[in-house]
Amino acid sequence: MAESMHRFPGYDVLAKRDTPSWNPQTRRVIEERLALPPQAHGFFTEAEWRTLNAVCARILPQPPDRADPVPIAALLDQQMQQNRGDGFRQADMPPLREAWRRGLAAIEAEARLRHGAAFHALAAAQQDALLHSIQQGEVRAAEWQGLPVAHFFKARLLHDIVDAYYAHPTAWNEIGFGGPASPRGYVRMGFDRRDPWEAVERKP
């Protein structure tokens, strides 16, 4: 889906930055997120970084004509540096950082085992097929040892990527979310009611 097919044409939550919809602390937090360089990484190694970027591009493929893509991998690297987990993990799952390192290594090993090539070098369809089999827990590489494969895919890989993506203003624009709202919230609550500061949906 090209960005030009946007459901909410012309909508930009950032346009509300200087209205009562945004309080100073929200401005601070979002500005910091937007300032993150897409190539910034201090936790993942170069090899991991290449794999990670390729994985993110398949889990949430962004339109090529997008002006301000979500730097998913950089956001994940930041999460690793902060060691910001969920506050729990299943008994068979390694802690956050270890799970990601082992998971990326295993994805890479699986790609080499199946296709004799690095994951990031595969065609999109091959990458998708490989990710689907990981999702099903159908893997062969020895590197998966000690990782609950399907659970890792769902609770770690998907979960962290999706958390990073949908916490970004670009994603809010894409789905017509109102975005930050304080002190000003909303007035019109009923069906098909929209405040002037909300997104207009393109009707077919």
Binding site: P183, R184, G185, V187, D195
Partner: peptide, 14 residues
Amino acid sequence: NMGGWRNWSQNILN
């Protein structure tokens, strides 16, 4: 109301 008169676009109505 939250935001007072600065948040007039909401508070005039709510």
